[in-house]
């Protein structure tokens, strides 16, 4: 790799990488509680709410992420919602991520015996208490692996923001490519940075799984 070729574009690439990191963190931080709320609403909420959430989640899951981003970025202004590319991309990515993630979380809860929810209520445990002390300790170890897989998919998905003119890592790499006519240097560099990001998440997953095993004294 030719350093003299990369050097002029390094600041842009780094700022693109920073935007990608920000976008990843913001979408994950926002999507996780929303996904949990959706999962709980679908499993424990009143029937009309559960139905409405099911329709919404499946509608979003049927669509390509790009179309969802187009809806927010290009369709929003038609409804009077004009926003910056970054905001639009965040809203679109959070909607996509939360819909898929709610399914992963529901998968973990579905492994629990339904009787446990009833038993907690019969014993008069407050809902938050039941969730924290009874249900989550059992569901969390089941949720963590698919959750982290989803998180990695969401980090890769932030590259779509470049299609609604966010200057993220993908956008900066392709811009540098089209100026220098040296695409594979920059695309490879961007690829390595994305791999590094998902590597961090994989390491985090290993740490969380070990922590959960020790905390809840799980077998294995």
């Amino acid at each position: 790799m030719d350093y003299a070729l990369i050097a002029p574009y390094l600041p842009d690439l780094l700022s693109g990488f920073w935007i990608t990191v920000q976008l990843s963190v913001i979408t994950l931080v926002l999507a996780t509680p929303i996904a949990t709320a959706i999962a709980l609403g679908r499993d424990l909420g009143p029937r009309p709410l559960a139905r409405a959430l099911a329709v919404l989640v499946n509608a979003v899951r049927l669509l390509p992420a790009l179309i969802v981003l187009y809806f927010v970025f290009y369709g929003g202004p038609q409804l009077g919602l004009r926003m910056k590319p970054m905001t639009a991309a965040t809203i679109g990515l959070v909607a996509m991520g939360a819909a898929y993630m709610s399914e992963d979380i529901r998968g973990g809860f579905s492994a629990l015996d339904r009787g446990q929810f009833a038993a907690c209520r019969a014993l008069g445990l407050p809902f938050g208490h039941a969730l924290r002390r009874v249900l989550l300790p059992q569901a969390l170890p089941l949720i963590v692996p698919p959750y982290m897989t989803r998180a990695i998919i969401m980090v890769k998905g932030t590259s779509l923001a470049s299609m609604v003119s966010v200057a993220d890592l993908t956008a900066e790499a392709t811009r540098a490519s089209s100026i220098t006519y040296q695409p594979y240097v920059f695309v490879l560099l961007a690829g390595v940075l994305y791999l590094a990001l998902s590597g961090v998440l994989v390491a985090f997953q290993a740490w969380v799984e070990r922590h959960l095993r020790l905390r809840y004294r799980l077998a294995r």
Binding site: S159, Y184, Y194
Partner: peptide, 23 residues
């Protein structure tokens, strides 16, 4: 497998379209 599943598909598309001509 780790590399191809770890890089955003969009980037791989760019590579096939803009990167392969160099080769």
């Amino acid at each position: 497998s780790w590399v191809f599943r770890g890089i955003p598909p969009l980037l791989l598309l760019f590579f096939a379209f803009f990167g392969l001509p160099i080769m």
